[in-house]
């Protein structure tokens, strides 16, 4: 969209200021991860530490196999989960976005109902382990996030914008619903699909609860679970040290604050590379404009 240069400059300035504000807390995380533990104890958190050290990262990569494997697990879960999840989400969202679909309302309600009511963790756990036998498999992390009512409803909102004329004319040409979906609808909706893909990918990348519940094997631990373990165990341990047997526990051997923050950085970092991949598809006005001609 072309607008006058002053306006653009003002808008840009607003965003630069906002981005700096958003960035400041995250920058603090990065800096703490690069600050020595003694420095942290003496001076607390600071934006400008006395000097930057990499001991926290060295600590994490001391046994590189663990973190490298976790990256692999997380990446596999995210890629498979996003591709399959996006496909299924788009298919059902498209069906209920079509105003001429006879089961539109009932299906919408059927989907939406699951956003509000759930049976809770116990029946879910029983289903996953005793009926689907997914315990300790990578599928226990992929399947749960495939379809969410929220995603379907939002994507439905986007897809409802596709003009019926296009679909009607494709029908005239003898195309079935499946062909229309794959050859007309998908190419027309790339910005919406890219957005949804991004959200699904982020969800998978951030999810640790399913891994916590279903994964016992150390080989299948995703990145976020490593992080969560580090964060939550520290709190539980420090508040219950009196229960630790005769000798107690030497907490000084445990991941320090800088190590925990380094884990945060390592866990978030790669997604910043993934972002631009999806952004390629955020193309202005493609949906309708390109079809008029």
């Amino acid at each position: 969209m072309n607008s006058n240069p002053t306006e653009t400059r003002v808008v840009n300035l607003i965003f630069i200021l906002l981005s700096l504000l958003m960035l400041a807390p995250f920058a603090l995380v990065v800096i703490i991860s690069l600050t020595g533990e003694a420095d942290l104890i003496q001076n607390g958190y600071r934006f400008v530490p006395d000097r930057l050290v990499f001991t926290a990262y060295e600590y994490i990569f001391k046994v590189p196999s663990i973190i490298v494997r976790s990256y692999g697990v997380t990446a596999a879960v995210t890629v498979i989960g996003t591709v399959s999840g996006l496909l299924v989400t788009a298919m059902i969202a498209y069906a209920i976005s079509r105003p001429d679909y006879g089961y539109r309302r009932v299906t919408s309600f059927y989907v939406f109902f699951t956003m509000l009511f759930s049976g809770g963790l116990i029946p879910y756990y029983i289903l996953m382990t005793q009926y689907l036998h997914l315990k300790d498999t990578i599928w226990a992390m992929i399947l749960p996030g495939m379809l969410s009512a929220w995603n379907v409803m939002v994507l439905k909102g986007f897809l409802a914008k596709i003009p019926m004329e296009i679909i009607e004319s494709a029908k005239m040409d003898g195309a079935g619903e499946w062909r229309i979906f794959f050859t007309v609808v998908i190419p027309l909706s790339t910005p919406a699909l890219a957005t949804m893909g991004l959200l699904i990918a982020f969800w998978h990348w951030n999810d640790w609860l399913n891994a916590l519940l279903f994964i016992d094997s150390q080989k299948l631990v995703p990145l976020q679970l490593l992080l969560v373990r580090m964060l939550s165990s520290m709190e539980v341990i420090t508040q219950n040290l009196d229960k630790f047997g005769i000798g107690g526990l030497d907490v000084s051997k445990f991941p320090t604050m800088s190590v925990r923050m380094a884990m945060v950085v390592l866990a978030a970092g790669p997604m910043m590379v993934v972002f631009p991949f999806f952004q390629r598809y955020f193309v202005q006005g493609l949906t309708v404009g390109s079809l008029k001609g």
Binding site: L121, I122, Y125, I126, T129, Q130, L212, L213, D216, V228, R229, L231, S232, S233, M234, E235, V236, I237, N240
Partner: peptide, 20 residues
């Protein structure tokens, strides 16, 4: 099957109550 202290409660409560 070692489970770190931080997630022990959460994981085991669900697993036990599901009859694992």
């Amino acid at each position: 099957k070692p489970v770190d202290f931080g997630s022990y409660d959460q994981k085991m409560n669900v697993a036990i109550s599901s009859g694992e």
